[in-house]
């Protein structure tokens, strides 16, 4: 019997910032692109995010941070993900991220950084490219 594989994405808002418009719009766009999106809500601790990523066995973790606390939160999340053996998860960060912090986030293992004004189609294309979804002929079991 043919097996089906679904891309699973965790969308999370670490820190205290409650501005969830972007996270929700992206979550919805990803759903409409056929992904299974696990939304964890606002005010998430780095521990909670890493643990949810593990339990849900996601392929992608998308973090939305608009408060400027990204340089405190992202390193911690990346460390916890690695500690839990989630080395191969694609991590994306969206929000208000000054240019000078982008290379720092990438050095931590973040693959994509998306600022205000990013088109959701660009985020979807980025994920598809990074996960090689477009080049696969038939999806295989995980």
């Amino acid at each position: 019997m043919a097996s089906s594989r679904k891309v699973r994405v965790l969308v999370a808002k670490p820190g205290l910032d409650g501005h969830d418009r972007g996270a929700k719009v992206v979550a919805r766009a990803l759903r409409d692109a056929g992904f299974e999106v696990i939304y964890t809500g606002i005010r998430q601790t780095p521990e909670a995010i890493a643990e949810a990523a593990l339990q849900e066995d996601v392929d992608v973790v998308g973090l939305s941070i608009l408060s400027g606390a990204h340089m405190a939160l992202v390193p911690k999340i990346m460390r916890l993900l690695k500690e839990k053996g989630l080395n191969d998860v694609l991590v994306l960060v969206g929000g208000i991220i000054p240019d000078e912090d982008v290379p720092k986030l990438k050095a931590l293992g973040v693959k994509g950084v998306f600022g205000p004004g990013t088109l959701t189609t660009d985020i979807i294309a980025f994920i598809r490219r990074e996960l090689n979804l477009d080049t696969e002929e038939a999806p295989k079991a995980a």
């Binding site: 759903r31 409409d32 692109a33 992904f35 299974e36 999106v37 696990i38 939304y39 809500g41 949810a52």
Partner: peptide
Amino acid sequence: SGGALLGDRV
């Protein structure tokens, strides 16, 4: 779309 929004963890 075949996608889903899973929000119960909140």
